[in-house]
Design a protein around this nucleic acid. Structure first.
Lengths: 173, 173
DNA sequence: TGTGCTTTGTCCAGATATTAGACACGTTTG
DNA sequence: CAAACGTGTCTAATATCTGGACAAAGCACA
């Protein structure tokens, strides 16, 4: 966990798994693979991969992506800190949108571009690693709510669950 | 602003504009339209629409969506509280992903389904209207960081920019 | 196995922030 | 106009945050 990044790739096609493994070998210290998401949760719990690359289409013939979406939500709920990048052969905008709304870090389509895949995975890890100081988070949220209330400090304070004076103080700084 | 929701539709095709206007007439109290995003910022500042429906492809022949993406970021930066739903004729997954990452509330493709469009727009408004109390936001963030630090409270407190004891207190509640 | 370094849980006392309440004043609204 | 509402400001009690300290526990590594 000190510095070497690891990745867990889940795809039911062993050929893809091999290809990805070779492609990512130079980037990640360890590349774990699974041909089925069944044991994904256990594997993640044990190995703590830095990022997960999850194929959306399992159970041959079912290409709606329901399967992958289900696993995405399951994994994301269990490990909200581990970024999940989805990959699918069926470029479906609606699916991609739904995936991102369900917590996916990114969404790429097959056939993929190696460099782009690596960039996407790195970005996902970087973004997941960022930690926003509490005060900054607070300030940003306060400003957002205040602007939504069109400057009405009383209402904003109310919505935020703090007193009006406290909101004053927070604005000064 | 009390209850009647308004929408601003930006599309360079007047026919689409008319179609959308009719489709949304029963849902929104006011439907504003623009055939070019040039005056979008001014219009938004003046009219405060509840949601914006923005077409991605202006300047005929340029279909990469760059134009729309530019306007998305510009509008989103200026009015972060106003949800922006993108619409495009060119179903491009990569574009959709980038749009969502750039702050779009949703992404739909032409031809659209009226009911779905209305649902998406309503969702966008609802989501934008939600206000999370400051304490809840704080707690969620603290727990996230703490789990990312694998329970190491000293490091978590450090990353959060608070003292270790304060983190203790926050955990108790 | 032992030695250092880090982390933990707990305490303290001073500094800072938050709170409810109050007040005069300006603005909105019916 | 009058009532209701928001603002800016103040106070005093309360709560929270902070740095510092301490022994004990955990861990890394020779």
């Amino acid at each position: 966990m000190v510095n070497g990044k690891s990745i867990l790739v889940i795809d039911d096609n062993p050929a893809i798994l091999t290809a990805v493994k070779i492609c990512l070998g130079g980037t990640f210290e360890r590349t774990l693979t699974l041909t089925s998401p069944d044991k994904a949760l256990a594997t993640i719990a044990q190995e703590h991969p830095s990022v997960i690359l999850l194929d959306m289409n399992f159970s041959l013939g079912v290409n709606s992506g329901q399967e992958g979406m289900m696993w995405l939500t399951a994994i994301h709920r269990r490990f909200p800190d581990t970024p999940i990048v989805l990959i699918t052969a069926y470029a479906d905008v609606r699916l991609a949108v739904r995936a991102l709304k369900n917590g996916a870090a990114d969404f790429v389509t097959k056939p993929w571009d190696n460099d782009e895949l690596i960039r996407v995975l790195k970005d996902a890890i970087d973004k997941a690693g960022e930690v926003i100081p509490l005060e900054q988070l607070e300030n940003e949220h306060v400003r957002k709510v205040l602007s939504k209330c069109e400057g009405n400090m009383k209402r904003a304070a109310d919505l935020l669950g703090i007193s009006r004076q406290t909101l004053y103080n927070k604005m000064k700084s």
